[in-house]
């Protein structure tokens, strides 16, 4: 067996190869590559958008551009931007996550809301209910979620933007329902979270738990996510219930100034964000069941699935986003207190 000698060479060659490979992996960053750091449910959406933008950009400038995407819980994604992922743009699930990047890392300008139309919201969404076929528990409105035998699946509001919208939507409903009584609204949300058997870290995890694993009776979730379940798991297993009132959910987009200036991609990144407001992109949003800013750009059959319901803005009830985040989700906030009181 000649193994010994060749092994000796292998060791040397491997060590040499390792250093070579290390040298080779220093990322060569072409100018025509953008990174969009996004939240969990937009995977399918940005596949379409990114392809459409690349085509559009090629036609306009002749430059080939690749838009890469990273998806995860909105908070976790904001954390990676703070820790230095070279994102050109962020498209997150809730304004407070972009505020956090601006505050902690200063990579986004604090007045990011003013840089794009509609406070950086090319589309909005809302929270609807996904229930089992035939709606056996008779869930019609937010109040039905706290009926004794109803089990609710919702993600952790600490890590998931969708989880936070669900939380705020339930709170807002109870607040309006009880003549703006904060204590009663808090108690309602407290009862709701007692009926949650599984608290996943992201909206996607919750959907898998509900749809694939068969747990729970109702899944309050992003409107787009509910329709996606329809398409992926079949309409014969679930029903979508649209409650009479729900929340005006705001998933904003912003430019990461520090990164685009360093990478020299500001022009492309700004064009990308502007592209989100074009008729072409707006139609794609509607196709994926997000509520487009320009309804007239969308196809009729897509709009038919996005009925006009009474939507309330949480800022109107609780004030600024700094306050909303602090009051509800920061350490020692309402969500933390619920757990302590409940168990």
């Amino acid at each position: 067996m000649r193994f010994s000698n060749s092994l000796g060479h292998t060791v040397v060659a491997a060590a040499f190869g390792a250093s070579l490979a290390l040298a080779a992996t220093v990322p060569a960053r072409a100018q025509s590559e953008l990174l969009n750091v996004s939240y969990d449910p937009t995977r399918e959406l940005y596949k379409d958008i990114n392809a459409a933008f690349a085509e559009d950009w090629k036609a306009k400038t002749g430059e080939t551009i690749t838009v890469r995407a990273a998806h995860g819980g909105s908070g976790a994604q904001a954390r990676t931007v703070i820790d230095g992922i070279p994102a050109d743009v962020v498209t997150l699930g809730i304004p407070s996550d972009i505020d956090a990047i601006a505050r902690i890392s200063k990579k986004i300008s604090p007045d990011w809301r003013t840089k794009l139309p509609n406070e950086g919201l090319p589309y909005t969404s809302t929270v609807v209910f996904l229930v089992r076929k035939g709606n056996p528990k008779g869930v019609k409105d937010w109040g039905d979620l706290v009926k004794p035998d109803v089990k609710v699946i919702t993600p952790n509001p600490k890590t998931s933007a969708g989880g936070r919208w669900n939380f705020l939507a339930a709170w807002g409903y109870a607040y309006e329902q009880n003549n703006k009584d904060v204590e009663k609204a808090n108690a309602f949300v407290g009862q709701l979270y007692k009926q949650v058997p599984v608290l996943d870290t992201g909206a996607r995890g919750s959907t898998v738990t509900f749809a694939q694993r068969g747990l729970g009776d109702v899944l309050p979730t992003w409107e787009n996510e509910a329709y996606l379940v329809f398409d992926e798991f079949g309409r014969d297993k679930f029903d979508i219930v649209i409650p009479p009132t729900s929340i005006y959910a705001e998933p904003p987009v912003a430019l990461v100034d520090a990164n685009v200036d360093k990478k020299g991609t500001r022009k492309q990144a700004e064009a990308y964000l502007q592209f989100l407001y074009t008729d072409q992109a707006q139609a794609i949003f509607a196709k994926h069941h997000y509520r487009p800013l320009k309804r007239e750009a969308a196809k009729k059959e897509d709009l038919a699935l996005l009925p006009e319901i009474k939507l309330f803005k949480i800022e109107d009830l609780q004030g600024s986003w700094d306050d909303i985040q602090k009051k509800n989700f920061d350490n020692g906030g309402l969500f933390d207190q619920l757990g302590k009181a409940g168990r």
Partner: peptide, 15 residues
């Protein structure tokens, strides 16, 4: 790629 770097590295270190 990751294994191709990490394993030889730990091999040299281990020996």
């Amino acid at each position: 790629i990751t294994a191709a770097i990490a394993v030889p590295f730990n091999l040299v270190f281990g020996v």
